[in-house]
């Protein structure tokens, strides 16, 4: 009986949210993440708008990666990780979804260290379309070429699509994982320090691609390079030691118009 009452209230809640703030792709309320009881991130409240690049900056152990992991429910891999609070993706509470796989298929993730699956280059990119049920070779060919081109990798691998993805160099594998994330045709693309394993020239090429992709999707960019956030992000959040210090328009934060002194200190390299 009590359950039914709760369901109704949460339903009307979600209807209201979608009605009033339809432009919000992602809403995070009172999010707390802990590992075996030790909090890694506490009480985060923020929202990400549709078609923006949302930057997250902050030193190591700030909780940035944990934050991303909670967004596509990767906490299910790790029994010690517990997520509390509310996350709404397209207005839906992601902890009450019936099909978590469908959620993940709409969210592309690029990990800090490249993970080329032990498949051929072609299959790495074609895997997600195949999981969606696309079977026609011509259609797959087209997706593979488009995604690899967007990830600035096509020219280097077009003659060896059938060799193993794990044989590529680190930077190439990273671009392969970007291509793979794009092959999901994601609603939301999350990049976790993607440029760690990529050389500066390629980084700039990928950054240009991200600016274009903004038309089609929402992007969350976690980065250690504050200047990268400045170049790309429309708004930026500053995470520090498990706390979301502030969220603001990127340019404001970088010109000292933020609310918290620690943000400017970090950006200017006084600590970090």
């Amino acid at each position: 009986m009590v359950n039914i009452g709760l369901d109704v209230s949460s339903m009307s809640d979600s209807v209201m949210t979608t009605a009033t703030e339809v432009a919000h792709k992602l809403e995070v309320n009172n999010l707390t993440i802990s590992y075996d009881g030790t909090p890694a991130l506490s009480n985060v409240n923020l929202s990400v708008r549709e078609h923006e690049i949302f930057g997250i900056i902050g030193p190591a152990n700030a909780g940035k990666t944990s934050f991303l992991k909670s967004l596509n429910r990767m906490d299910t891999f790790n029994s010690s990780m517990s997520v509390n609070g509310q996350i709404r993706f397209n207005g839906l509470d992601i902890h009450n979804l019936k099909n978590i796989y469908a959620l993940r298929s709409r969210i592309g993730v690029v990990f800090p260290l490249p993970v080329g699956l032990p498949l051929t280059i072609y299959e790495n990119v074609a895997l997600s379309p195949r999981l969606r049920g696309i079977k026609k070779r011509r259609e797959l060919d087209e997706i593979v070429e488009r995604c690899l081109t967007r990830a600035a990798l096509w020219d280097e691998v077009k003659d060896r699509l059938n060799s193993l993805g794990s044989l590529l160099s680190g930077g190439q594998q990273q671009r392969l994982t970007i291509a793979r994330a794009l092959s999901q045709e994601p609603d939301l693309l999350m990049l976790d320090e993607f440029s760690i394993a990529v050389d500066p020239v390629t980084t700039m090429r990928i950054e240009d691609v991200l600016k274009e992709l903004k038309q089609d999707m929402t992007i969350i960019l976690v980065t250690n390079l504050v200047q990268q956030a400045r170049r790309l992000a429309d708004r930026t959040a500053f995470f520090l030691e498990g706390e979301c210090v502030e969220v603001g328009v990127t340019e404001d934060l970088f010109t000292g118009q933020g609310k918290d002194q620690r943000t400017l200190d970090y950006i200017e390299g006084k600590f970090g």
């Binding site: 596509n72 990767m74 796989y101 709409r106 990990f111 699956l117 895997l127 997600s128 999981l131 999901q184």
Partner: peptide
Amino acid sequence: VPDRYREAAEALGATRWQVIFKTVLP
């Protein structure tokens, strides 16, 4: 088989069985 393969495949939206069949077994 490293766990990062499983995580990467699951992040693509693969189900447990798809992860095993398409990634772990190969």
